[in-house]
Amino acid sequence: MIIFNYESDFKLVNEEFYSKWITNAILNEGFEVGEINYIFCDDAYLHQLNVEFLAHDTLTDIISFDYSIGKLISGDVFISIERVKDNANDLNISFDLELPRVVIHGILHYCGYKDKTTSDAVMMRKKEEQYMFLLS
C-alpha cells in the first residue's frame, strides 16, 4: 500500500497515477509492495530529520527510511518540495519533471540501488530515466 502524506501546502495532483507507477516499478524490479509512506514537506521539516536521524546539517531533497524485509518493499520517503523546486530551477527543467525523478529515487534505493560512487550514481540515473520514460 502506498500512502501520500502532506506536511506542507503541496498536494500531489494524481495520487492514483503515482501509486500505480510506483507499484509497477517495484514489481518490475522483482519486489513486492509493502507499506510505503511518502511525506511531502518543506526544507525546515526535512532538515530537522536530517540533523536528528542522520547527523547531517545540510538541506536535501529526499530522505528515505527503509523498512523492507526480503522482497517486501516498505519505508518512509520524505521529500522537500522546496528543494525539488530549487533543484528543478538549477537544472533548468520543470518541477513536474524533477518531482517524479525524486519520487522514484527513494524506491530505487529500497530495491538495492546506491548512488555514493560514480558508477553507482550512473546506474541509479539510468534506472530513474527508465522509469521516467514510462511516465510519458
Rank of each mutant, 00 (worst) to 15 (best):
E16H: 10
L54Q: 12
I62H: 07
N37W: 09
I107R: 02
D90F: 02
E7F: 08
N87P: 01
R101C: 02
N5H: 12
H105V: 01
D61C: 08
S68D: 14
D76K: 13
E82T: 05
I22W: 09
G70C: 14
I39P: 04
E35P: 08
N37A: 09
L91C: 12
F10M: 00
L59I: 10
I81N: 01
S68V: 06
A88E: 02
W21T: 04
I81Y: 05
I93Y: 01
F78Q: 05
Y38S: 04
L99A: 01
G30Y: 13
A25S: 13
G75A: 04
R83I: 02
A88G: 03
I93R: 01
R83G: 03
N5I: 03
K71P: 10
L99S: 01
S68W: 09
H109L: 04
E29N: 12
G106W: 07
H56P: 00
D42C: 11
D66P: 08
N24T: 12
Y110G: 04
H109Q: 05
S68F: 10
S68C: 10
E7H: 08
V103W: 00
L99V: 00
L108Y: 09
N50T: 11
S80V: 01
I22K: 05
D76M: 11
T58S: 12
V33E: 14
F65N: 12
E32Y: 14
K20D: 14
K11M: 07
F10E: 03
W21P: 05
K11Q: 11
N87S: 03
N24H: 13
F40E: 03
D9C: 00
S74G: 10
V13K: 10
L108V: 04
L46R: 07
I63K: 10
Y38Q: 09
H109E: 04
C41Q: 11
H47R: 15
I36F: 11
I107T: 03
D66N: 14
N37Y: 13
I81S: 01
S68N: 12
E32R: 12
N28W: 14
R101F: 00
S8L: 01
L46W: 09
I69N: 15
Y113T: 07
F65T: 10
N89R: 08
Y45M: 11
K114L: 08
L97C: 00
A44H: 11
A55I: 10
I81A: 03
F40A: 01
T60I: 08
S94F: 03
D86E: 14
D90T: 01
D86Q: 14
G70Q: 14
I63R: 10
L59G: 05
E52L: 14
F95A: 01
I79N: 03
L54Y: 15
S64T: 06
F10L: 00
H105I: 04
E35C: 12
N87E: 02
F65Y: 14
C111D: 06
H56I: 10
S19L: 05
N14M: 02
H105W: 06
V51D: 03
I62D: 05
I107K: 02
